[in-house]
């Protein structure tokens, strides 16, 4: 009997796998078809030269939206989304990272007026190759025509710190995170605190949630991410900032490869409809 159950179980999972693959390929198929119609429509209107780099339709869309989002419009109906997160985490749980697509996502975030963007994967691939990612981001910014706006990515990784004046000036900050910034940084903060106890500067009674929070942040005033966009087939945070995701909303997208601006907007809209009750 056990054999029969196992056989049925295997069949069930094969079916689920086929279902998932079908859905993904259908999505890609639809996108390609959509993309072609876009391109044809744009080609009819514009000179071919501008098409070489980046789909111009998207460029206009982003610029228009960034204007609207930055304008802090008074009528909610005129806004792209009613509630915009200040800090967005991009959590990649896929085997093959695509730097161009991540750079696109980062640039879109900045264009709609998000101040902090964190990029994370559990292998630390982006951290290892952060210069490559920075180059891509700058390139995509140029392609989108954002180079003359004051939206320059302040790039943070090992050793670099945010300066208070940058935060005040409203420049968007991009942070590349790896598992080290998660539990390991909590452990380090705990060790630092225990050292002060060892040296009799503090006692164990001194620690509470606000104090430990301050210790973890070390003078950096970065807010917790309100939204994490998770890309990939794994339903897990895989070590993404355990302390900071207390109230974070998770929105799942199937893949970051070839992710479109529409997908990005849908994720933002899903966030804006979420209601936070703060325990009430």
């Amino acid at each position: 009997m056990a054999l029969v159950y196992e056989l049925v179980w295997r069949m069930l999972h094969v079916l689920l796998h086929i279902h998932r693959t079908l859905v993904t390929s259908l999505r890609v198929l639809l996108r390609n078809w959509n993309g072609q119609t876009w391109r044809r429509a744009v080609a009819a209107l514009l000179t071919p030269a501008s098409l070489a780099g980046f789909p111009d339709s998207q460029k206009k869309l982003v610029l228009e939206i960034s204007k609207r989002a930055r304008g802090r419009c008074s009528r909610p109906s005129g806004c792209l989304v009613e509630k915009l997160p200040v800090h967005v985490g991009l959590l990649i749980v896929e085997e093959q990272p695509s730097y161009t697509d991540i750079a696109n996502l980062v640039v879109w975030c900045m264009a709609v007026g998000i101040s902090y963007v964190s990029v994370y994967d559990n292998h630390g691939v982006f951290r290892k190759n952060d210069t490559l990612l920075l180059e891509k981001i700058v390139r995509q910014q140029d392609l989108l025509g954002l180079e003359d706006s004051k939206y320059n990515a302040e790039f943070l990784s090992n050793g670099n710190t945010v300066h208070q004046d940058q935060i005040v000036s409203g420049q968007p900050v991009v942070k590349v995170l790896s598992p080290e910034d998660g539990k390991q940084s909590i452990v380090e903060a705990a060790r630092r605190f225990c050292r002060t106890v060892e040296q009799k500067e503090k006692t164990s009674k001194d620690i509470d949630v606000p104090m430990f929070d301050a210790l973890l942040r070390e003078s950096k005033n970065i807010p917790d991410p309100e939204l994490v966009m998770k890309f990939g087939p794994v339903d897990s945070t895989l070590g993404f900032l355990p302390w900071h995701i207390r109230l974070t909303e998770f929105v799942s997208l199937p893949s970051h490869v070839d992710v479109s601006y529409e997908d990005f907007l849908v994720a933002l809209q899903r966030y804006s409809t979420c209601e936070q009750r703060q325990g009430k």
Partner: peptide
């Protein structure tokens, strides 16, 4: 319960261990 409260409490317990001379600060690990 909240998770942050739990983590802060864990740090307090470790600090207590340091005060009691049971562990050293460098023994703190994940």
């Amino acid at each position: 319960y909240t998770s942050r409260h739990e983590m802060a409490n864990a740090v307090r317990e470790m600090a207590w261990g340091v005060e009691q001379g049971l562990i050293k600060a460098s023994d703190v690990s994940e």
